[in-house]
Amino acid sequence: MADGSMTNVFLAAVLSPLLLGVINRTKAFFAGRKGVPLGQAYYDAAKLLRKGMVLSRTTTPVFWLGPVAGLAAMTSALLFVPLGGLPAAVSFPGDWILLAGLLALARFLTVLSALDTGSSFEGMGASREAFFASLTEPVFLSALAALSLKGGASSLNDLCAFASTLFAENLPAAVLVAAALFIVYLTENARLPVDDPNTHLELTMIHEVMVLDHSGPLFGYVVYGTAVKLWIFGSIVVSVCPLFRAASAPFGVLVALAGLLAVAVLTGVVESVMARLRLLRVPLLIAGAGVSAVVGAILLTGVGR
């Protein structure tokens, strides 16, 4: 099992808020603004951790459980996410099921803590989040399972390594699976065609509205957890890409970080050039990702030999 290093975990712990900064700066560039500092998420999180809290009288300890367990689940999930050529800290057959499970755990408790406030806005956000997530989960799993169809790999490490070789062997399948994973990345991280992280109207929010009532250290956890989640899915997308995999350690780290930077910039570009989809159209986007994963899988079963 444990064959990798903790490098990825440390990198994520230190650098993940930077990704949010990069996305914001990219969007600012497209909008012709100067934009917030790259390290804004660090300042936010640090400041929030030092602040006091406002708690609603309606809430129970479940309200605490959302951010706390959310961040704990994200950091434990980091343990088995590879980064480019760097293997994950822990790797075992089926670890990506545990990854999906931990993400589901974080989401479940976040949804509950939103419902705990009794606010109709947060209930609305929770309902939409639960709906989209329930469609995204099978897509995520079927994209990864497609990769294990031919390579026979069963841990996230091996799956990503196999996927990156696939680009040379079976380009269409590789592109299809990678596209599905990228849409999952956008959906899970509440990015643009699905959810607008910058919206200012509670009615249109999904992810942001669920944490309206959190404040102080709890909201600090939420901000930091968002960054770590972005890092997790970003690393998966990067590790699947053959471009950002290099074997030797110091160089490998740099290449992988460059990959994450590229993914963040790409996210910023997507957010700048696309409008948000109507809520009713989002399921079709996710279903489209599912179609792409399944077609990839069918190609991998040997149809496209």
Binding site: L49, G52, M53, V54, R57, T58, T59, S119, P217
Partner: peptide, 14 residues
């Protein structure tokens, strides 16, 4: 933090 800092009890954001 909650014990050291100020915790205000209030209504849910309406």
């Amino acid at each position: 933090r909650a014990r050291r800092g100020a915790v205000a009890k209030s209504v849910t954001w309406d």
